[in-house]
């Protein structure tokens, strides 16, 4: 059987690519819904902004954890 396609290089790159999908969708949802909420209720801006930033931090932390996960599992 002949080779149709092959992947060479470091597999951790694929792992990070997969790990970035979830946080990418999450950040999109957070800012999309946040902007929508501000447009609907401009007077609740402070509260929405605070929760938007908090959600963004937690989501972004997951993306960056995915970035260092290969190193962590190498160490263990």
């Amino acid at each position: 059987m002949s080779v149709l396609a092959e992947v060479s290089g470091n597999v951790t790159a694929i792992g990070y690519g997969l790990a970035a999908i979830g946080p990418g969708i999450g950040v999109g949802i957070i800012f999309g819904q946040g902007v929508q909420a501000i447009a609907r209720q401009p007077e609740a801006y402070g509260l929405i902004r605070q929760n938007m930033l908090l959600g963004f931090v937690l989501t972004e932390a997951l993306a960056l954890l995915g970035l260092v996960a290969p190193f962590i599992f190498q160490a263990i």
Partner: peptide
């Protein structure tokens, strides 16, 4: 704030 959060993390 939004731009500096990734660099803080």
């Amino acid at each position: 704030a939004a731009w500096s959060i990734p660099s803080y993390l």
